[in-house]
Amino acid sequence: MEFAGKTILITGSTRGIGAAAAELFLERGGSVILHGRSQAGVDAAVARLSAQYPDRVHGLAADLADRAHCRSLAQKVGALDILVNCGGIFRDAPIAETSLAIWDETIAVNVTASWVLSQELLPVLRQRRGAIVNVGSDAAMLGYASCVAYCASKGAIVGLTRALAIETAPHVRVLCVCPGPTDTDMMRQSVTTAPDEAQAQLQWASYTTLERVAAPREIGEAILMAASPRATFMTGSIIMADGGATAGKRV
């Protein structure tokens, strides 16, 4: 029960990687604040988990694209030990078709929200010697076609992680877990909108050395490892949970 007595806020945790991480924190004793964009989604996620973990599941809704919402979310959080910035969006489009709206929304949700929440929650995290775990992507290290805004946003998250780690040491540890392709709604949406669905599915898997996409829980485990009190000498770390995607590739 390594997270007993710890409170963890996980953005984007009504589904996907965030939801998997939330379940793992609960299994290991933590109290979790779930977050999603819609109140209905948050309520459903809280209801689903609180039956099994009464008193340890809370929920807050906020639109991460709006920094006023991020600030109000932070204000509603009291004591906090671990912030997991997991909420993110992926809008694939070639450079020519990446509208200003796609660009601005991607940066707002994937970078600025993580920055604003980190800044707002730093006082409590400092006081409690807490940790921030940002969720990056293998796309922070590897360029992919038709997702220039997403790649830029995930690169920025790596920079944010390092800058926060340097400036908040030794009080707060700041780390970044970079998942490879993971079986979530986000990825499935990209697959189902592709011209050839089966081929798109194979292509995602082909980016990895393990030749498969990750289960959300596998990424959740990496997030828990980063947040764990066993990781006390790890800060500023960029942890690749990418099935070997950044290790190299076959000819």
């Binding site: 920055w115 796309a139 076609a145 038709s146 997403y150 390092r162």
Partner: peptide, 20 residues
């Protein structure tokens, strides 16, 4: 922090552009 974040983003964006 803002400069470091933006410059890291620029490095990653350059790779995406190079591939595309």
């Amino acid at each position: 922090v803002a400069y470091v974040s933006a410059k890291h983003g620029l490095v990653a964006m350059t790779k995406a552009m190079a591939i595309e």
